[in-house]
C-alpha cells in the first residue's frame, strides 16, 4: 500500500498539477505496466505446446492412414473437444489467466469462448440461456469470418477467372 503510494508520487513528480486535461497522461505515467517479457514468453510456450499437441494428433491420424489434409481438420476437432472438457472442469480459465494470447489464439481458445458462456448461462435455461448466449463471445468470429472470407474468396476468384 505504502510502496504503491510512493511509486505514484515518484512517477508523478513531473506533474505540478493534475487536472482534467492532463489526467490521461498522468495516469499513463503512474500506472504499473504489463509484464511484457513474462507475458510473451508464457504465450509462446503455451501457444507452441498446444500446436505441438495438434501436430502429434495429426501424425497419429496420418499413421492410421488418413490423408494429411483430413488429419489437419480432425486434429482441430480433437483439440476443440479437449478444450471444451477442460473448460467444463474449470482448468482452461486457469491456463488463460497466465498464458494470455497463448491460450486465446489457438482453436482451443475459440472452443473455450463458446463453452464458457454456455456453462455460465445454463441457469437461464437451455433455450434463452445456452441457446442465445453460447456465441456471445465467439459469435463475432463466425460472423466476421464468414463475411470477410466470402469477400476475399470473391476477389481471388475474379483474379483467377480474368487474370
Amino acid at each position: 500500500m505504502k510502496e504503491r503510494e510512493d511509486s505514484v508520487k515518484e512517477k508523478g513528480r513531473d506533474f505540478n498539477d493534475v487536472n482534467m486535461q492532463n489526467y490521461k497522461s498522468y495516469v499513463f505515467a503512474v500506472m504499473p505496466k504489463s509484464k511484457h517479457f513474462k507475458n510473451i514468453i508464457l504465450a509462446f510456450v503455451v501457444g507452441g505446446l498446444i500446436c505441438v499437441i495438434g501436430q502429434l494428433i495429426i501424425e497419429f491420424f496420418v499413421f492410421l492412414g488418413v490423408s494429411r489434409v483430413d488429419a489437419t481438420g480432425h486434429a482441430s476437432s480433437c483439440l476443440i473437444v479437449i478444450a471444451a472438457i477442460l473448460t467444463g472442469l474449470g482448468v482452461y480459465d486457469k491456463i488463460g489467466r497466465f498464458a494470455g494470447a497463448g491460450s486465446t489464439i489457438p482453436i482451443t481458445g475459440f472452443s473455450n469462448a463458446v463453452v464458457a458462456p454456455a456453462i455460465e448461462y445454463r441457469c437461464e435455461g437451455l433455450i434463452y440461456g445456452v441457446g442465445t448466449r453460447m456465441f456471445f463471445v465467439a459469435g463475432p468470429v463466425i460472423v466476421n469470418g464468414v463475411s470477410i472470407a466470402i469477400v476475399v474468396a470473391l476477389v481471388r476468384w475474379l483474379f483467377f477467372l480474368y487474370c
Binding site: H36, A43, V46, C51, G54, I105
Partner: peptide, 18 residues
C-alpha cells in the same frame, strides 16, 4: 516447426494485447 510457428503467432497476439 509446429512449436516455433504456433508459438510465434501467439507471441504476435500477446504483443498486440500488451
Amino acid at each position: 516447426k509446429a512449436f516455433l510457428v504456433g508459438g510465434g503467432i501467439c507471441v504476435i497476439g500477446q504483443v498486440l494485447i500488451n
